[in-house]
Amino acid sequence: MRSESVASRAERGTFNAVVGALSAIAIVLLIAPTLIVLLVSFTSGQSLRFPPPGWSLRWYQALFTDSPDLWRAATLSLQVAGTATAISTVLAVCGGLALARQPRLWARFLDSVFMSPLMLPTLALGLGLLVWFNVFGTGVSMVTLVIGHTAITTPYILRTTCASLSQLDEVLLESAKSLGAGPLFAFRTVTLPLILPGVAAGAFIAFMMSFDNVAISLFLSDARSEVLPIRLWNIIESNLDVRAAAVSGVLIAVTTVLVIVMERVVGVSRHVR
């Protein structure tokens, strides 16, 4: 092996140092905020002071004893996110079957239209939907809320479905067909089981995005129905109640568990790229 000159070793050293330092900042940034919120949620004090003056579970207790508003909001959020994800899964899987591996112009065009909610300001879409429903005289309700959420969650599922379909070995479908399987039977026994992890990962991401959405819900929910992120936002904006930290703690814990489970089962991280 060629011996390395001092200069080139130093050069490699500075490169690694710069990459390492910047990555370290990035990693700290990724972790620290969540950790700090978790720690603050266990405070015994009345404020969000860090470090907390002492430790207690009082704010978590407050969630269970005197927070019907938060429970109502959480229930509504689960309902909306669940319904919207179910609808967008059906729409996106059907659409994906038609659009994946379809190089024609109309398919590419439709694909970018269906993906557009990922790029467009969702607040503009929320306002557009509000005006739309007012013009048609339906007003806003749980139904309009679900429709708005379906529009923004569909792209996530469509993307993972198309990606899974394009990795599907066409030979399998050919052999199913040549063995006499009809299109529906082939879909149920060959295609669906193979794309299921991708669809599930997409549906999971869609659910989380819907559960967290503020911009659409802000315009499309009526005065009585407040979803959790908006309730949380109102708490944070009005009096910075420490209950907000406890809700955040619960959300962080649930998200972490779900992500780890889904990572094991369907490999979410392979599908977010």
């Binding site: 990693i27 990724l30 972790i31 969540t34 919120v37 991401i205 989380m208 559960f211 967290d212 503020v214 992120p229 949380l232 936002w233 944070i236 809700v247 955040s248 959300l251 962080i252 998200t255 972490t256 779900l258 992500v259 990572e263 979410v268 991280s269 977010v272």
Partner: peptide, 12 residues
């Protein structure tokens, strides 16, 4: 570490 924050509520 990268995916967890992405799926954690932006409000949080």
């Amino acid at each position: 570490l990268i995916v967890l924050p992405l799926l954690t509520s932006a409000v949080v």
